[in-house]
Amino acid sequence: MERIPILRMGRFLLVTVQVDLQDEVVQALQDDLTAKIVRYGARGVLLDISALEMVDSFIGRMIGHLAAMSRILDAHTVVCGMQPAVAITLVELGLSLGFVRTALNVEKGMKLLNEAIANDDPHGLLDAEDDERPL
């Protein structure tokens, strides 16, 4: 089974979806992502879905779940690069993902995350802990 790579970029995790999401792939991604947020103490997650061309209600809900899980683990989540067709489909399915932050591309998403973190932690106290946490 394919796994979606999760890249660590400083305080953030970058998840780039390059394949069409199968249900079990998403399930595995949820496991991996939550594990890595805890392991690296990540402060933000960028979910880049610019290569995603098709969604169904399950995938739409999973995107929402990923964001909600990250938030519970105190990491800000930004979904970036959603294609017009995907956005229309999600709205027609009634999944507006109102609580998920969105950005047009990874660059803008990164800016958004930096702003959010600067708000949370203006003095950079939480950055001191740079080492990996024990599993």
């Binding site: 979904v79 017009p84 995907v86 956005a87 229309i88 709205v91 507006s96 969105t102 950005a103 998403g109």
Partner: peptide, 11 residues
């Protein structure tokens, strides 16, 4: 709906 779709894209 249009607003929600644009927001999903990040606008």
């Amino acid at each position: 709906k249009t607003v929600a779709a644009a927001r999903l894209m990040g606008a």
